[in-house]
C-alpha cells in the first residue's frame, strides 16, 4: 500500500508542475516585439522542442525559433556560435550537457569568443548541471543560464525498481569516459546499499584510441548476469543510449530486465521499464522558464533550475512478456505501456 501511494505521488505525467508554474507567472506581453529564440540540439529535434513551442504558442508569446543540430559532435559548435552572434537572439535553448557546454560554456570559463556569454540561456536534458559546471547550484544558477532538471531522484528510481519486483542486485554498465555516468555511478554506490540492495558496477573497457568499446557490451551483460545481478540499470549515459539496441538485446538474451532513467532507451530500444520524465512536459516546463525571461523580464540568474514533480513509469510490455516478468497489478493501473501492436 505504502508503495502504491508513493508511486502514485511520484509517477505519471508532470502536467501538475507545469500548471503550477504557469499559475505563478502572469507575464505582460509586449505585443509588438517578436522574440528570437535560437535552439541548439544534440542529435536532432525531440518531443522536448515540440512541448516547448506548444506552450509558447498556447500562451500567445510572439516568437521565432531557429533550431540547429550539433549532430552528436562538439566540433560543429563554432559554426553555430558564429551564426548566433549574427542573429543576436533574445534567448538560447540548448539540449543536453554537451550542447550546453559547447555553446554556453562552463561557469568558470572566462569571456571567450568561442562561446556565447551575453545572451540568456535555457538548457534541457542536462542530467547533472551542477557537476557539469553549467550552473552554480539548482537554486542559484550564478550566471545568465537556467534550465530544467529531468532526472527522477536515485531514491525514486530504486523504489520504482523495487515496486516492479523485489529485485536483490542491480548491475550498472557505464561509459567510464563520461562525467555524467561517473556522477551517476557514484550516486548509486552511495544510495543503493542504503536501500537494502546490492550493486555491482561494470565500466566499459576502452579501445586503443581511449574510447569506450561498444563491442564489449554483450560480454559485460553476461558478466553482470554471472555476478548474480537480477536487474540492469541504465543511467543518463549517452554512450549506452546510443548502443541501446545491442545492449538491451544482450540483456534480454541474458534474461535480465533493464531499468532506464531516461526516456530514450525506452522509446528507441528494448529496455523493460523505467521512471522517466515526459519529454513533452519537460519542454513545456522549459517554456515556462523562457516566458518568464522573455516576457516577464526576469533574469536567468534569478530563476532556479526547474524540476518536474511527477514522472512517468514506463513499461515495455513486449520485453516483459519475453522475460516472463509481467508487471504487478498495482503498477498496471498507473504505468504507461509500450507494446508492439500499439504505438
Amino acid at each position: 500500500m505504502r508503495k502504491k501511494i508513493y508511486l502514485i505521488s511520484v509517477l505519471v505525467v508532470a502536467c501538475f508542475a507545469v500548471n503550477h508554474a504557469t499559475a505563478q507567472s502572469v507575464p505582460t506581453a509586449n505585443a509588438n516585439k517578436t522574440y528570437k529564440i535560437f535552439g541548439v540540439v544534440w542529435r536532432g529535434e525531440t518531443e522536448v522542442e515540440a512541448g516547448f513551442q506548444e506552450y509558447l504558442n498556447q500562451r500567445g508569446v510572439p516568437y521565432e525559433m531557429t533550431i540547429r543540430n550539433l549532430n552528436l559532435s562538439r566540433a560543429n559548435a563554432p559554426g553555430i556560435i558564429e551564426e548566433i552572434k549574427q542573429v543576436k537572439p533574445d534567448l538560447i535553448y540548448t539540449w543536453g550537457t554537451g550542447t550546453t557546454q559547447s555553446i554556453l560554456g562552463k561557469l568558470s570559463e572566462s569571456e571567450s569568443d568561442s562561446l556565447i556569454r551575453d545572451i540568456p540561456g535555457i538548457f534541457v536534458l542536462v542530467a547533472y548541471p551542477v557537476s557539469a559546471e553549467i550552473v552554480n547550484s539548482f537554486e542559484d544558477p550564478g550566471r545568465n543560464v537556467t534550465g530544467v532538471a529531468f532526472l527522477a531522484s536515485i531514491e525514486a528510481q530504486i523504489k520504482s525498481i523495487l515496486a516492479y519486483r523485489p529485485f536483490k542486485k542491480i548491475a550498472v554498465i557505464y561509459d567510464a569516459t563520461s562525467s555524467n555516468s561517473k556522477i551517476n555511478v557514484s550516486q548509486l554506490e552511495e544510495i543503493v546499499p542504503q536501500m537494502g540492495l546490492e550493486l555491482s558496477v561494470f565500466p566499459i573497457p576502452k579501445t586503443a584510441d581511449g574510447k569506450s568499446d561498444p563491442e564489449s557490451l554483450p560480454e559485460l551483460v553476461q558478466k553482470a548476469k554471472d555476478s548474480g545481478a537480477d536487474v540492469l540499470y541504465m543511467g543518463p549515459d549517452s554512450f549506452i543510449t546510443r548502443h541501446g539496441d545491442a545492449y538491451t538485446a544482450a540483456a534480454i538474451k541474458a534474461e535480465l530486465p533493464t531499468f532506464a532513467s531516461t526516456q530514450s532507451p525506452l522509446r528507441n530500444t528494448r529496455a523493460m521499464f523505467g521512471l522517466v520524465s515526459d519529454y513533452h512536459t519537460l519542454g513545456k516546463l522549459a517554456a515556462v522558464q523562457a516566458e518568464r525571461i522573455l516576457v516577464g523580464g526576469e533574469k536567468p540568474e534569478d530563476l532556479p533550475v526547474a524540476r518536474l514533480s511527477r514522472f512517468k513509469f514506463w513499461i515495455n510490455i513486449d520485453v516483459a512478456r519475453e522475460l516472463g516478468l509481467y508487471p504487478p497489478m498495482d503498477l498496471i493501473s498507473i504505468a504507461d505501456f509500450k507494446q508492439s501492436n500499439v504505438n
Binding site: M1, Y326, P327, P328, M329, D330, L331, S333
Partner: peptide, 9 residues
Amino acid sequence: VGVDEYFEN
C-alpha cells in the same frame, strides 16, 4: 502478478 495485494488494497 500482485493481484492479491491489489485486491487487498
